[in-house]
Computed example of a mutant assay.
Amino acid sequence: MKAKVAVIGTLKVLPEQVQNLMPHLRTLVEASRLHEGCIAYDVAEDCFEAGVVRVSELWDDRKCLERHIEHPDVPPWHAALRKFDVLDSKYVVLDVSGVTVI
């Protein structure tokens, strides 16, 4: 299976907010994994940097990623996220069409 698009990101909130953020993030991740073209969607709290959540996503193609972003499952996540103190949020989208996922 070839992954064509990867999203790598970091989300930083106040360390004391991570525990309350995770249920909202879990809802998004579980729904996103069911979206068409989702190969992988993973998040983890950084074990060295308090308050930082690492995100990695693999999608069949750019269109699948765009449909995911526009999916009705995503706005509730954005609404929930507004309740937290987001200190930083960075995401990059990479063309990884030459990478084989095994």
Rank of each mutant, 00 (worst) to 15 (best):
D61G: 02
C64H: 09
E66L: 06
H24R: 10
L11F: 05
R26F: 00
D85N: 12
R54C: 11
L11Q: 10
W77F: 15
K4A: 09
E70A: 14
E45V: 15
P15F: 04
E36K: 13
L58W: 05
V52N: 05
R62S: 15
G98L: 10
C38Y: 10
I8N: 01
A80N: 05
V53H: 14
A31P: 02
P72R: 00
V52H: 02
C47Q: 10
V52F: 06
T10C: 04
Q17G: 15
K2N: 07
P75T: 01
F48C: 09
M1I: 13
D61I: 01
V5H: 04
Y41I: 06
L87A: 13
T100D: 05
K90F: 13
A3T: 06
A3Y: 05
C64S: 15
N20M: 07
L94N: 00
A50C: 10
W59C: 00
N20V: 05
E45F: 07
V101F: 06
R82G: 13
G98Q: 14
V55G: 01
R26W: 01
C38K: 10
E49L: 07
K90C: 10
E66Q: 05
E57W: 05
I8E: 01
V7H: 01
I39F: 14
W77P: 00
V53W: 12
